[in-house]
Write a protein that binds this DNA or RNA. Structure first.
Lengths: 205, 205, 205, 205
DNA sequence: TATGAATGAGGTTTCATTCAT
DNA sequence: GATGAATGAAACCTCATTCAT
């Protein structure tokens, strides 16, 4: 029947609401965002939002889940296409920077609104971050095992440090009035990270 | 004379309110924190809080300002006592880790509650962070100038990456159910950072 | 011909909705009853309910009207079959008790949900009650005229008192966790009512 | 200190809110009553209501509890002053009628709004009714024991029937456009009730 | 005729802040 | 200066009802 069409329409509407939420959350901040404005911008009635999402916080969760999952998928695929752990790490970090640079409103939400409360951070956001950290950690451990990376830095510490470095660059970019290209900062950032991780040529202290 | 005593009492009361705020913000989160609970815990009436601070957000600002300033002062003094830019950087990072590890409630507030909204982040919190970033950047630039650090990583990028790495370790520690000692993670973190910053012995790309 | 069949189907559907409403109103209470649940339980779509009834309150009205009318019809027929006003009154009261005891969900709705608001009570419910009160009053007046009942109690007061007594027994039964048979309480109730109404053998004060 | 005065002011304000609630509930019905109107009529701000009562339903509970308790107290005292069970019963019923006739808005709330939902009825209202029923039952049992009342009507059935009769007269009065004096209906009602309860002079079935 | 997705009005309650005492 | 009772703005969400298909 018209099921497929209906589903298309349904999916389109869902996307419209989600996109509207990203924009309103980015513009006003989560707390100051009004569900009415999300609905208006999505072109639906107030109540319609609640046919697609449980409530305001569920919108935030959905923004996180769907984008984080898509990112992780792409990052894993990128990494999977490389043999060398170094290349894998490079690709993942570049993907991270590029993904968020391509959608500033979404980056806003990811870097700031998704961290608005401890409860939310612990229950929701960190679940996706943990997943990402595990990916980084696995790649780094692989690099250490292959002799590429030094072995005196535990992979979990390294993974968090790498994530933190990338994350902070993105947050700066999000908060800046006149942001400098993120991709443009990838090269020095990668030099720093790889310099820190790679084994010294002549051996180090 | 009575003025001095009065001032002492006043100062003590102010401190009690501020400390109560740190604890309540850490326990409940900024949004869920109730001014009444802050007042109760400080042992004053609801209205008294407003004789010492403009309002709820002013408490958050005061927590930030006073602790950040004290930290920056100590960090600058620490750095000033060292000649070597490497030693300076090391001291500052260690001070950063130790300062927050010694007060978990305060660390909660610094890592999470102070970032609850874009407006607050831009108007307030980043002011102190910017100051800190400038300190890091100066030390790194000094290291580069002295030939200790490589010159193909702009000091501002390096400073943000270093800050992000440290910051993320602290956030993980704050959010962990069973946190591992922060100080214990300092050594590998410093190896990573210094590895990334220092010029290669034999020279590399 | 097909019309008759169609009408049968239509009538069946109408009944299903009405019955579903009785059950849902009894289980959840009128205010907490959801039209969706009524529709679900009747096996129709949300909107279909509105093809058979004007709305939620119209369902309540229909439950009242149809059952009250059927009850009144039976009560009048019962009474009509008796010559003696005493026997008439007895039959009507027994019919009242038995009718509601045979359908607890309906009794719930009659004793409680139909009285949920003054507006409803005045505009709707009392219309049927008034009818019933008139029947009681007529029988009692007849009893008084025939010398069976005492003449110092106005028939309208007596009718309301009798109705109230029966009504309260039913309400107690509806609200009780472990209700005792209503029919079983008919005998003492009737003794009380007839004792109150009947002329004293030797004349009283 | 000013504690007594403060308490007086507090009590006055509490009463004002409660009285406003009685009136608004009576005029609009519980569901259609707006807390704003209650506050306005009490001459306080919206939020003040919540300093004195937990919420809207708590107002209804308070109206019930306070008035029912006062009534029960008076009814028990009235009964206690009489020796004869018949006189006791008469006093209690008269008190019941008079109490509500003296405050029509309160009677509205008692006869209608307090019965608006099964949940409320079971959890709250019936608690007070049960108490009242027990009082009636005790008096009737006493009358039976003393040989005044017939022994073939269980006291609990009699108590409910009596309550129901009185209750229905009051409800009719509350709903009537041009109500006839309740006190004026007391005499025939009492004749009916006592006729029903009292032992027959010459003995009957 | 039946469907069920969409509509949108509407109100209780919380809590930061004020201010009379 | 300290108190704490009073203030009142403000928004999420539900659900009866509608109407395009």
């Amino acid at each position: 029947m018209g099921g497929a069409l209906r589903n298309d329409a349904r999916e389109a509407r869902r996307s419209a609401i989600l996109r509207a939420a990203v924009e309103v959350f980015a513009e006003r901040g989560y707390e100051d965002a009004r569900m009415r404005e999300v609905a208006e911008r999505a072109g639906v009635a107030d109540g319609t939002t609640y046919l697609y999402f449980q409530g305001k916080e569920a919108l935030l969760v959905a923004i996180l889940e769907e984008n984080a999952k898509a990112f992780l998928k792409r990052a894993r695929r990128d990494a999977g296409r490389q043999k060398d752990p170094g290349a894998k790490l490079r690709k993942v970090i570049e993907r991270h920077l590029v993904s968020l640079e391509s959608d500033r409103a979404l980056a806003h939400v990811f870097q700031i609104e998704l961290r608005h409360s401890r409860r939310f951070l612990r229950q929701v956001a960190r679940g996706q971050v943990a997943e990402y950290l595990r990916l980084l950690q696995r790649i780094i451990a692989e690099g250490t095992a292959s002799g590429l990376f030094r072995d005196d830095i535990p992979a979990d510490v390294a993974a968090r440090a790498v994530f933190g470095a990338v994350d902070e660059l993105i947050t700066s970019w999000v908060l800046a009035d006149r942001p400098r290209s993120l991709a443009g900062q990838a090269a020095p950032l990668l030099r720093l990270i790889f310099g820190g991780l790679e084994r010294r040529a002549g051996g180090s202290r």
